[in-house]
Simulated scan of single mutants.
Amino acid sequence: AAIAAEYGRCLPVHTRLFTQNDLYSLYEMLAAAKRSGGRLLLSHFVYQYSGFGTLRPALDVVDAARAKGMDVWMDSGMYTDWATYAGTATFDEQTIKDNSLRFGDMVAATGKYTGTRLNRELYELLRHKYPDESIICYSGEPYEIYEALQKPYAMMSTDAGAYAPGEGHPQIAGSYPRFLRKMVREKRLLGLEEAVYKCTLLPAQTYHIPGKGVLEPGYDADLVLFDRDAVRDNAKMPDKGEPDAPPDGIPYVMVNGVFAVDDGVFQNTCSGSVIRY
């Protein structure tokens, strides 16, 4: 935190919570950020503090910190159902017990068992023979997503990794179209302009990334053309459908002035560039 503050950079953090009702992890990072005086970004917030009635108290803590002048922001996604590798401490048996999780609420997200709900036998197999495969855990309450993303200091994120075709978590293909469908069109919790801001300019401002987030001469030509009345996520959990199904209503995506999606078809272009300060 001190090094990030020294260089004027944002510090994005996954807090080290021990259970799903652990707020100590939040206080710990806020204390580090306060001592450093730097900017803190609490990443994929709903995944960490959803369930067991923890989200609202967690948001209250962040609100209080910001009210006292702390430079604190957060990103969050459109799913409470989280995923990580089978061999990590997250799926230690003691951690499962401490969080009152059940094998039947877990599904293999990658590998030969993709889409299969776990039982004790499959859990043991994945843990010991396939520790690098991912598991999705069904958790949390959908309303918590909307509470988090309505905060003015909250921006959209996916927490997505690279998956083989037909595998993985639907967040990699569904997050942003789901955000526009749910938050703007169906529930009307955000206006279209504010929703777009949370996906574009707010992240650019939070990270101090030049040339991004606004349609202005001289800025990078990163453009998304979507139909607000038709945009829809089609990605499903691997036990319910295709986790990488492309969305509807997004015919064109341009990265650095080059079409990455043209007439709804992914072009497999590599026109982006690494951002270096």
Rank of each mutant, 00 (worst) to 15 (best):
Ser100Thr: 06
Asp105Thr: 01
Ser273Arg: 13
Ser157Asp: 13
Tyr207Gly: 01
Phe18Gln: 13
Asp229Pro: 13
Tyr123Leu: 01
Gly161His: 14
Lys151Leu: 14
Phe91Arg: 04
Met78Thr: 13
Lys97Gln: 09
Gly166Val: 06
Met183Ser: 10
Trp73Gly: 00
Glu124His: 11
Ser100Leu: 09
Tyr27Ser: 10
Asp98Trp: 04
Ile136Ser: 09
Ser134Cys: 14
Val13Arg: 00
Lys212Gly: 07
Glu141Ile: 00
Lys187Gln: 15
Gln48Lys: 03
Ala2Arg: 12
Gly257Cys: 12
Asp132Leu: 15
Gly213Glu: 12
Tyr146Asn: 07
Val255Ser: 12
Met29Gln: 15
Met183His: 13
Ser134Gly: 14
Thr88Tyr: 11
Met78Leu: 08
Glu167Ser: 06
Tyr24Ile: 03
Arg56Phe: 06
Tyr146Gln: 14
Val46Ser: 13
Thr158Gln: 10
Leu55Arg: 11
Ala245Gln: 02
Gly191Cys: 08
Leu30Ile: 01
Val231Asn: 08
Leu26Gly: 07
Phe91Asp: 03
Ala109His: 11
Lys151Met: 14
Asp227Leu: 09
Arg102Gln: 04
Ala58Lys: 08
Gly77Trp: 05
Gly115Gln: 06
Leu201Phe: 09
Ala235Arg: 01
Tyr163Lys: 03
Asp244His: 00
Leu225Gln: 10
Thr158His: 09
Glu193Gln: 13
Arg102Gly: 03
Ala65Pro: 14
Cys10His: 02
Pro217Lys: 10
Thr54Arg: 05
Gln94Ile: 04
Asn234Met: 09
Thr54Met: 09
Thr158Tyr: 11
Asn21Arg: 14
Glu193Tyr: 02
Ser271Trp: 10
His14Met: 06
Ala221Val: 07
Tyr163Trp: 10
Ser175Met: 04
Tyr176Glu: 01
Ile96Lys: 08
Asn234Ser: 07
Val261Cys: 07
Gln94Arg: 15
Trp82Ser: 03
Ser175Leu: 01
Glu93Asp: 04
Ala89Val: 15
Cys10Phe: 05
Gly87Met: 08
Val265Leu: 12
His128Ala: 13
Asp233Gln: 03
Ala235Gly: 01
Ile96Glu: 13
Lys34Met: 05
Val107Gly: 05
Ala89Gly: 14
Leu118His: 07
Ser273Gln: 08
Cys10Pro: 00
Phe259Lys: 06
Ala162Cys: 08
Ala1Ile: 07
Glu147Ser: 05
Leu202Cys: 06
Thr88Lys: 03
Pro203His: 03
Tyr197Pro: 15
Gly174Pro: 09
Tyr79Phe: 13
Pro251Ala: 09
Ala160Ser: 15
Tyr252Phe: 04
Val107Glu: 05
Gly111His: 03
Asp71Phe: 05
Val61Glu: 14
Tyr130Cys: 04
Glu186Arg: 15
Pro210Cys: 03
Tyr176Arg: 00
Val224Trp: 02
Tyr219Lys: 08
Leu122Ala: 02
Gly51Phe: 09
Ile135His: 10
Lys236Pro: 00
Ala5Pro: 02
Gly161Arg: 11
Asp263Ile: 03
Arg9Trp: 11
Lys34Gln: 13
Glu6Gln: 12
Pro152Leu: 00
Met74Lys: 01
Pro203Ile: 08
Leu223Tyr: 05
Ser134Trp: 13
Met237Gln: 07
Arg66Ile: 06
Tyr49Arg: 00
Ala64Asn: 14
Ala154Trp: 11
Ser25Met: 05
Gly140His: 14
Arg127Met: 00
Leu40Asp: 05
Arg66Phe: 07
Leu55Ser: 13
Thr80Ser: 11
Tyr143Asp: 11
